[in-house]
């Protein structure tokens, strides 16, 4: 893997943006990496703006800020528009088309739609599992980078979210296959 991988996830409070960062960070620690995960939010936790910034590195992380993220997970239009220009030229934006309606085609980085909410609704009848779909997609990308193994990330997901294990596992696999 590279010396340092930056990932920003942002959306509304309640979508699980912080939990996503925590699960990814936990997997990084299990993988022997150095990790920081910052969360920023407004006073209201549900419905307000939330961002988590994850840095996975081989050595101690100096700056914990994602200035030019390798990955942006945009789970709201506001998040997409706020951070799209920060993404590195060879970086990737993953957005959920249910939340991000207008895509900016002038960006130099790659972009990929991941219909996480739709997949969760179609397969489980609940938007609750869309976060696990997203994590599955991240697992695929980070595995290709040689940073975090799929199994380690799944293990962290199931350890941190002890409920609905079977559904979360299936949602994770769906995400893994759909990117």
């Amino acid at each position: 893997m590279k010396d340092r991988i930056e990932l920003v996830a942002s959306g509304f409070g309640g979508q699980g943006v912080v939990r996503l960062g925590q699960i990814l960070g936990e997997a990084g620690v299990k993988q022997g990496l150095r990790v920081t995960m910052l969360k920023s939010h407004g006073t209201e936790m549900r419905g307000g703006y939330v961002r988590s910034q994850v840095v996975l590195a081989k050595k101690v992380v100096d700056s914990p800020i994602c200035e030019s993220p390798d990955y942006l997970i945009a789970l709201s239009s506001a998040a997409y528009n706020r951070f799209k220009h920060t993404v590195a030229d060879n970086g990737l934006i993953i957005y959920d088309p249910d939340f991000v309606e207008e895509v900016d085609n002038t960006l130099t980085c790659s972009q990929k739609a991941l219909p996480a909410k739709k997949l969760a609704m179609d397969n489980f009848g609940k938007p609750l599992f869309s976060n696990s779909v997203v994590l599955g997609a991240i697992a695929k990308l980070l595995e290709e980078e040689g940073a975090v193994n799929k199994e380690v990330l799944l293990e962290s997901l199931l350890a941190i979210i002890p409920k609905f294990k079977e559904e979360n596992k299936q949602a994770f696999e769906l995400g893994y296959k759909s990117i």
């Binding site: 990084g28 920081t36 995960m37 910052l38 992380v61």
Partner: peptide, 9 residues
């Protein structure tokens, strides 16, 4: 805030 609220290994 970044120290107390942030997550780190």
């Amino acid at each position: 805030q970044l120290i107390t609220d942030g997550w780190e290994d």
